[in-house]
Simulated assay, not measured.
Amino acid sequence: MKTLTYEQLASILLAVIALIPSRAVRYTALGLLLAAVILCKIRLQSPSMQLSQLAVSLNHTEEYIREAMVEVPRSYSRLADQMRRLYDVTNTASCIKRRILRSETKASSWKGFRSLSTDIRECITRFRSLSNEIGECIRCVKNIRTAVELILEAEHQRRLASDLMEPQSALAVV
Score class of each variant (00 low, 15 high):
residue 146 T to H: 11
residue 23 R to S: 12
residue 152 L to M: 13
residue 156 H to A: 13
residue 4 L to N: 03
residue 58 L to W: 02
residue 95 C to P: 00
residue 47 P to G: 15
residue 16 V to K: 02
residue 123 C to K: 15
residue 132 N to M: 12
residue 86 L to M: 00
residue 153 E to P: 00
residue 79 L to D: 02
residue 72 V to M: 04
residue 153 E to C: 10
residue 94 S to N: 07
residue 146 T to L: 14
residue 156 H to N: 12
residue 94 S to K: 09
residue 1 M to I: 07
residue 84 R to F: 03
residue 118 T to A: 04
residue 84 R to C: 02
residue 20 I to M: 05
residue 37 V to L: 15
residue 49 M to W: 10
residue 55 A to N: 06
residue 3 T to M: 13
residue 33 L to Q: 06
residue 99 R to E: 14
residue 12 I to H: 02
residue 74 R to Q: 08
residue 105 T to Y: 12
residue 144 I to K: 07
residue 162 S to I: 13
residue 143 N to E: 12
residue 148 V to I: 14
residue 54 L to Q: 08
residue 52 S to D: 05
residue 41 K to I: 12
residue 8 Q to M: 10
residue 36 A to I: 07
residue 118 T to L: 05
residue 59 N to G: 10
residue 69 M to S: 11
residue 90 T to P: 00
residue 81 D to C: 02
residue 18 A to S: 05
residue 91 N to F: 04
residue 75 S to A: 14
residue 140 C to S: 15
residue 3 T to H: 13
residue 109 S to T: 13
residue 45 Q to Y: 11
residue 12 I to E: 03
residue 120 I to V: 13
residue 97 K to T: 04
residue 142 K to E: 09
residue 111 K to N: 01
residue 150 L to V: 12
residue 37 V to F: 12
residue 80 A to R: 05
residue 168 Q to C: 07
residue 167 P to E: 09
residue 97 K to H: 09
residue 165 M to V: 10
residue 145 R to G: 05
residue 158 R to C: 09
residue 21 P to R: 15
residue 50 Q to F: 01
residue 52 S to I: 09
residue 32 L to W: 10
residue 28 T to Q: 05
residue 134 I to Q: 03
residue 94 S to A: 11
residue 83 M to I: 00
residue 74 R to H: 05
residue 165 M to K: 07
residue 5 T to R: 05
residue 157 Q to H: 08
residue 79 L to Y: 03
residue 95 C to R: 10
residue 30 L to S: 08
residue 46 S to D: 09
residue 64 Y to K: 04
residue 97 K to F: 06
residue 120 I to K: 12
residue 101 L to R: 13
residue 25 V to Y: 12
